[in-house]
């Protein structure tokens, strides 16, 4: 037999209020989940902004690799940390390209943009992969030559990003 306590200042919510809150919470949860989703793209403008975001992500990975290589050549990084950094940059660029290529371009103009961006992403990913492999082998001497295409690629990627923001 339990005694029910009298109403306290920190009162319980009524059942209806609670159900309403639960519904709101569920709706919010769905919205938040949807916010993270990528779906098919209908308009040119949305495709362009996705291209810009991809270019930004790839540029970020390329610049990370450039900085890491520069530091490694100057003897400022441990071999393992360099290898890890380059591996992450390579996988970031690769993921950016995979995600972007999976999006269906809505029209002809988008096709052109896609080709242009892929023309930058593919060599970038390839160069980063080569750098990753060389770093894993501890081959610091090779790094500058493998990193040679990166400055031009990052400039172009940044141009794409600015053009379609």
């Amino acid at each position: 037999m339990s005694g029910t306590p009298p109403d306290r200042p920190a009162a319980r919510l009524s059942d209806r209020c609670r159900r309403g809150l639960a519904a709101v919470a569920l709706a919010l949860a769905v919205l938040v989940a949807a916010a993270g989703c990528t779906g098919p793209v209908r308009s040119d403008g949305v495709y362009a902004s996705k291209a810009a975001a991809t270019a930004a992500a790839a540029a970020s990975a390329v610049q990370t690799a450039r900085l890491a290589v520069q530091e490694a050549v100057d003897g400022r990084l441990f071999g393992r940390t360099l290898a890890q950094t380059l591996a992450e940059a390579a996988s970031d660029a690769g993921d950016a390209q995979t995600t972007f290529d999976a999006i269906q371009p809505p029209d002809g103009r988008a096709d052109v943009l896609r080709d242009q961006l892929d023309g930058l992403l593919t060599p970038a990913v390839s160069a980063l992969e080569d750098l990753r492999i060389a770093a894993r082998r501890g081959d610091v001497a090779q790094l500058p030559s493998l990193a040679a295409p990166l400055p031009r690629l990052s400039d172009k990627l940044e141009q794409v990003q600015k053009a379609h923001r």
């Binding site: 930004a56 992500a57 540029a59 970020s60 610049q63 990370t64 450039r66 900085l67 890491a68 530091e71 400022r76 990084l77 940390t81 890890q84 950094t85 992450e88 970031d92 990052s154 940044e158």
Partner: peptide, 18 residues
């Protein structure tokens, strides 16, 4: 300035090692 958007710990360490 380099446009690096950090998503890994490695990128957080680069400024210090630089």
């Amino acid at each position: 300035p380099l446009g690096i958007d950090p998503s890994h710990l490695s990128q957080a360490a680069l400024p210090t090692s630089l």
